[in-house]
């Protein structure tokens, strides 16, 4: 830990302070130091979207942000948004529509879908697809995911 930097951030409403190695990215920090394993790690270079978390209200790639860069930030993960009930409608729609199979992409899909719901609550099917373009799913073929989000936005 030769370069460790003292870092204080709020994660799902709880303030944490840790000495963190700069090379440690945010999603690894959340998973390995805080045990919040709902955010997943796929490609580690920004392509798959599995690591999506919310920082100061905006979604980001957890693998492309250093944990030390989150100093002073408010970080929210799938665990926080799920427990608060913020995702309840989307989660139910994903369930009803069979919008997940293995579930690996699902936490991040829900984070991206919620972001769209907040920014563009009347998004069209095309806009839903565009907003999710950075989130890969290797199982569903996306159709059911778009259906589920459409149900929530237009239901």
């Amino acid at each position: 830990m030769e370069h460790a930097v003292e870092t204080t951030l709020t994660v799902n409403g709880i303030e944490v302070t840790r000495r963190i190695e700069p090379r440690r990215n945010l999603v690894d920090f959340l998973r390995e130091e805080l045990g919040l394993t709902g955010s997943h790690v796929g490609c580690e270079h920004g392509v798959c979207g599995a690591c999506t978390v919310r920082v100061d209200g905006e979604i980001v790639r957890g693998c492309l942000m250093l944990a030390v860069q989150a100093n002073g930030c408010k970080v929210e993960t799938i665990e926080g948004l799920s427990d608060s009930g913020e995702l309840a409608r989307l989660q139910k729609a994903f369930h009803d529509r069979n919008a997940l199979q293995c579930g690996f992409c699902t936490p991040a899909m829900l984070m991206a879908a919620r972001d769209l719901q907040l920014k563009n609550p009347k998004a069209s099917r095309e806009e839903i697809r565009t907003h999710l373009s950075g989130n890969y799913c290797r199982c569903t073929g996306y159709q059911a995911i778009v259906d589920a989000i459409e149900d929530v936005l237009h239901g």
């Binding site: 979207g49 492309l64 942000m65 950075g134």
Partner: peptide
């Protein structure tokens, strides 16, 4: 440019 989560940073 890329996707929303990348454009945010």
């Amino acid at each position: 440019i890329a996707h929303p989560a990348i454009r945010n940073r």
